[in-house]
Design a protein around this nucleic acid. Structure first.
Length: 435
RNA sequence: GCAGGGGUUCCCGAGUGGCCAAAGGGAUCAGACUGUAAAUCUGACGCGCAAGCUUCGGUGGUUCGAAUCCACCCCCCUGCACCA
């Protein structure tokens, strides 16, 4: 039996990772008393997890490192219904095969973060479709539904805005979501002796539902713990960039983009994020913060955060690649890159586009850059051109160059006859290869 | 089904016959400043290099001219009724 770390809850608390717990002090004692089994759910609402999922996912890992057994639940069933918690609008349903495909993807992703071979507290991955899938409506209504009071459900903060808000409503389907998730908890208690559910604070209502249901169905005492939703000091939504969501899948968000995302964390958030997302000891984070404050100029914290997170999600190779690109682009020494370096940039995830020399000139530069994904519209490129914010291999372009694509990409301007590093604004880089 | 209230450009939200590609705010993009920050200031922000083109739930009308008026339809919300 693995010894448990009794200070786990204190550490989570000190990191600011505890929003709510059930049962007051009882949870701390319960966790310190031995290896427990806990779970967190991940619904397949997309083909990849994103960084918002990292908090509960890494929490599973924290519990495992402290000697507890984590279960990652993939919501093949709940994903079919849609969680209404704090959502402003009814969500559109995805087809069963799509959800099933996504569930498989999530299974693979989730599995990389927890250890499946470490003895008693090895992790498990389960899919709630396994027990909800073949359940009959009548069984569900009689065995599960009977234990829920609609009066209570209506009063849940998580669905209140949907019920009260003018212009929106909530379908019975989504309203029932809580019952499904509650049943998951009861079922995992039954199957695995799972006695703790963790999740984001938006899950509190669903978790307490599960606690109640487990007691009613199995007379079991189980616990809940929620973690705060990640917020940013400036009030904007965490986890979004101009290109959209920051995914964990390297095919959707390259390790380079991922690294850059963390590197761009605001000062006001960075120490909090270090506590939330990394496994660095709190004392070390405090030291970093103190040193940053003592020194004028740029803090170190963002770099540490970006390194830790990229290594955690994309591994050492992913991190090295991201750093190679960053170093090359932001040192301003792109001219000194070797041909192999340029090839490597492409492999490391720098956005790249291949152009055919023969077909150059048909489109204005604005269109070429939009097609490459560097800007949302030609207007933006035009604006940038007018402000000398577009650079091609170190040469600033202007509106005059817009119709002269051939000349811009002339062979004599290319690196190694084919490469062009294009920079739009201060941070957006794109590699063009002309053949 | 009936009554009432709604559906405007990414979001919120003005606009009720021409001056409307459509106020204002937010978000976003770019520039200056900087630390690949923050704050601030500036510009852009339906699409198009441009000429120009396409929008205000849908369709069809009235009109020289419609986001704005009329008809029908679709969707949402609130209440009532129906059903039980």
């Amino acid at each position: 039996m693995t010894a448990v770390d009794p200070s786990l809850l204190d550490d989570l608390q000190a990191r600011g990772l505890v929003a709510q717990t059930s049962g007051g002090d009882a949870l701390g004692e319960y966790l310190a008393g031995g290896g427990r089994t806990l779970y967190s759910g991940f619904d397949p609402t997309a083909d990849s997890l994103h960084i918002g999922h990292l908090v509960p996912l890494l929490a599973l890992k924290r519990f495992q490192m402290a000697g507890h057994k984590p279960i990652a639940l993939v919501g093949g069933a709940t994903g079919m219904v849609g969680d209404p918690s704090f959502k402003a609008q009814e969500r559109k349903l995805n087809t069963p095969d799509v959800v099933a495909g996504w569930a498989e993807r999530l299974k693979g992703q989730v599995s990389r973060f927890i250890d499946f071979d470490c003895g008693d507290n090895s992790a498990e991955v389960v899919n709630n479709l396994d027990w909800v899938g073949q359940m009959s409506v009548l069984d569900f209504l009689r065995d599960v539904g009977k234990h829920f009071s609609v009066n209570n459900m209506i009063n849940k903060e998580s669905v209140r805005q949907r019920i009260e808000r003018e212009g929106e409503g909530i379908s019975f389907t989504e309203f029932t979501y809580m019952l499904l998730q509650s049943y998951d908890f009861a079922e995992l208690y039954n199957r695995y002796g799972c006695s703790l559910q963790i999740g984001g604070s938006d899950q509190w209502g669903n978790i307490t539902g599960g606690i109640d249901l487990t007691r009613r169905l199995h007379s079991g005492q189980v616990y809940g713990l929620t973690m705060p939703l990640v917020t940013k000091a400036d009030g904007t939504k965490f986890g979004k960039t101009e290109t959209g969501t920051v995914w964990l899948d390297p095919a959707k968000t390259s390790p380079y983009a991922f690294y850059q995302f963390w590197l761009n964390t605001a000062d006001a958030d960075v120490y909090k994020f270090l506590r939330y997302f990394t496994f660095l000891p709190l004392a070390q984070i405090a030291t970093i913060e103190a040193e940053d404050q003592a020194r004028a100029g740029r803090p170190e914290a963002q770099r540490v955060l970006a390194e830790e997170m990229t290594r955690l999600v994309h591994g050492e190779q992913g991190l090295l690649g991201a750093q190679r690109i960053t170093e090359a682009l932001f040192s301003g020494e792109t001219a000194g890159l070797s041909e192999a370096d340029l090839e490597q940039l492409k492999l490391d995830g720098l956005p790249a586009t291949c152009l055919e020399r023969a077909s150059l000139g048909g489109d204005p530069l604005t269109q070429v850059l939009v097609d490459a994904g560097m800007a949302a519209s030609g207007k933006q490129v035009k604006d940038a051109l007018g402000r000398s914010a577009v650079w091609l291999n170190g040469v600033a372009l202007s509106m005059d160059d817009n119709m002269a694509v051939q000349a811009c990409f002339a062979p004599e301007r290319a690196a190694y006859d084919r490469f062009f590093i294009c920079k739009l604004g201060k941070k957006k880089y794109h590699l063009f290869e002309v053949v």
